[in-house]
Structures are given as C-alpha cells and as structure tokens.
Nucleic acid binder design. Structure first.
Lengths: 218, 218
DNA sequence: GTCTATAGATTGATAGAC
DNA sequence: GTCTATCAATCTATAGAC
C-alpha cells in the first residue's frame, strides 16, 4: 500500500519507452532496466504488461480529460447565463489547450504528450481499447456542443470535421518537442502558446467554413 | 524472376495484417499462414521482415507520391502560364485527393490507406525510416508551393499548418472504411467524393486563415 | 521454389528463497 | 517487496532435403 517509489519509477520509465518505441516494441526487461528495478517488479505491482499500460493512461489521460470536461461545462454554463450557445473557438480551445499545455513541462508529461499523439492512431488492440474507453465520453460532449455552435452544419460534417481536428492535434502532440522528428526541419520550435493559438485558429477556420463550395478536380 | 504468385500473395497478406495489427505485432507466421505459403517463403523472396515492409511501401506509396508530384507540377506549370501562383485549394487537392481515392477500391488499397494513416504517426524506427524517405521530397515541394501561395504567412506558420493538414489526412485515412472504428458512430460513412471535398475545404480554410487573431483563454 | 526442422534469441510471466 | 532462476511460448531466420 505504501507510496512505493518503485511503482512510480516503473510508470515513468514505461511511459517514456512506450512513447518512444510503442507498446509492442517495448519489453518488460527494457522497462525494468530503465526504471532500475527488478524484472519481477512489474508483475508484482501491476499484474501484467497490459495492466501497466492501462495504469499509465489512467494516471494522465483521465485527469486531462476531466480538465477538458470541466472547461466545457464552464463554457456551456457561461453561455447559458447569457442565453447564448458557446462559441466554436471556446469549445475547441477547451479541447486543445489542456492537451498541449500540461501544468508543468516535466519530462514525464512531454513523454505522455507524445504517447497520446501516437495512441490516437495506433491500432494495437490493447491501446485502442483503453484509449477509447477514456476518450468516448469527451468525444460525445464535443460533438454535442459543436453541433449547437454550428447548427447549420449536418451531423456528418460535424463528425468528420471533429475527426480532422483530432488528427491535427494528434500530429502536433506527436511531433512537438519530439527528438525523433528533429530530422524534419522543426528547428524552429515555437513556444507552446503560439502553437496552441496557431492550431486553434486553424481548427476554428476549418470547422466554421461553409459547406458545398466544391471546385472542379485537377 | 518469374511473376511468382507467392510474392504477391505475401505482399497482400502482409499489407492487410500490418494495417490491422501494426508492424511489430504481426509475425512472419501470421503473414505466411494468411498468404497460405510456407514460413520460409518470406525470407526467400524478400530477405527479411523489414525488407518485406519496405517492399509494401515501395509498391504503393512510391506510385502514390509520384502521382501527387505530377499533379503539383501540372498545377505549377499551368499557373505560370498565366503569370500566377497556384491556388491553395489546388495544391491541397493534389496532396489529399490521390491519397483518399486509389484508382480502384480493391481491398488491398483500402488496407494500404489504413496502413499509411497509421504510419504517419507510428514511430517504430523501421516504419519511420522507410516512410520518411518516401515522404520527404513531397513534403519539400508542398512547403515550397504553399509558401508561394500564401506569401503573407511566415515559414513557421506554413510548416505547422501543413502538419495540421497531414494529421487530419492521416486520421481520415486511418478511420475511413476501417472496421475497427465502427464502434465510433461512423455509421454514416460518406462517399469518398464528399469526404475528399470536406477535408479539402476544411484544410483550405485552416490554411488561409489570417494569423494573430488571438483570444483570451478560458 | 517449396518444404521440414531447428537454431538461437527473446518474450511475458511466475515460483520460491530471502 | 525484492530478488534469482527459470519455464513455456514465441519470435526471426536459416540450413539442407526435395
């Protein structure tokens, strides 16, 4: 029961390795060596590799999504007080900002940002199941509020545009401050505030654009 | 040298499995059993699992990117003939449309669409190296042409907005027609034409939005 | 080209001493 | 709670018969 430093060391090491190498490619031996604990410690403290993976998401994604839900609720309540519906920009900000700005920029949180970015896409069954369970309630609220904010858009358009935003955010979380992507010319790393504003503006413009303005191909 | 049906069967089976399960999670046994060939056949025909993975990308991503490069060149030449610079929409269409509309919608191409969507994010070293090598020349041209089309935007803005588009496209390729994502309410699968137009409009609006229109947080 | 058989390494997990 | 030692399964790759 005690605080068990070992448990935290395992969580931190595994978070970093899963982010860098992926779930499948990371072995228990790699985790325990990096955490400088015994090989058997993971099974003792967590039960299995899969349970460890789940614990990592519970530790960070759950509180992150709670923050997002709380902000969405505040936005909704505030708008209602004025008899309005929430602005698209505020909804998207509540979704994007907490994901890119963890309170502290400690290493663990940078690792986890990368891990989430990867998990949005990675279809490893283990990852997907855990990830979806934690994301689903938030997605439901997002789709609902975006529909209210943009009543002229059909539900399909809302759904897909929300997916586009999710993809853009995932890509950003995946490459921002990620040493593996230094080969791309990200030599101009912006500060996180600019990046957040940049993505929000992009997302708002895309989300609010009128439909049906097709154009001939090629 | 002969056409070797075995080789194609392996490519098709591996493409599907890599798309569904990921590179690391897919074993040689799973591939050869699915392809109904002998376990040793992969090493005989391709040399190694990694070389097989590379062959899959060479078979589809290379021609896909050649199509995109060709269309970008046509757009550029056509604009030059009129003393203009290419429109953002046309550039983005050349990038997005070929990726979502393979000539035939054969199963293999659906699998590969999913595989590319995954590979944009997946950081497995093997996948990244191969994927980057094939994507880099295209990215260079895209960034160049987008800079011409949007001269008022600083290079960093161009770079990040391009990444947002890449993320949105990757997410779309990942979930469109993917049975694993049926749990999400994609019960309203749009036809591919609508989806393409939808993503292009979203991307154009995001790409062209003026910078600096910040807003207070929360 | 295709097959069987197997080498050689690595995996997640656990039993049992301390 | 931590450790050593090890099991049983699985992996990629290859040698060699046909």
């Amino acid at each position: 029961m005690g605080h068990s430093d070992t448990k935290q060391q395992i969580l931190n090491a595994a978070e970093s390795l899963f982010a860098r190498e992926g779930y499948q490619a990371t072995s228990m031996r790699a985790i325990t060596e990096s955490a400088r604990v015994n090989l058997a410690a993971v099974n003792y403290h967590f039960g299995s590799k899969e349970a460890l993976f789940e614990a990592i998401f519970e530790r960070r994604l759950r509180p992150l999504n709670e923050v997002r839900q709380k902000r969405l609720k505040e936005i909704r309540d505030e708008a209602r007080r004025h008899g309005l519906t929430p602005a698209t920009r505020e909804i998207l900000r509540a979704f994007i900002e907490p994901a890119l700005r963890f309170k502290e920029s400690r290493k663990g949180e940078v690792d986890f940002t990368i891990l989430i970015g990867r998990s949005f896409i990675d279809s490893d069954d283990t990852a997907q199941k855990i990830f979806f369970r934690l994301m689903k309630p938030l997605s439901r609220v997002m789709l609902e509020m975006l529909s209210e904010a943009l009543p002229e858009l059909p539900r399909e358009a809302i759904f897909w545009r929300y997916q586009f935003v999710v993809g853009a955010l995932a890509r950003t979380m995946r490459i921002y401050k990620n040493p593996k992507f230094e080969s791309m010319k990200v030599n101009h790393e912006p500060d996180v505030d600019s990046l957040i504003d940049s993505l929000i503006s992009f997302a708002v413009a895309g989300m609010e654009t009128p439909i049906g303005q097709k154009q001939s191909a090629v």
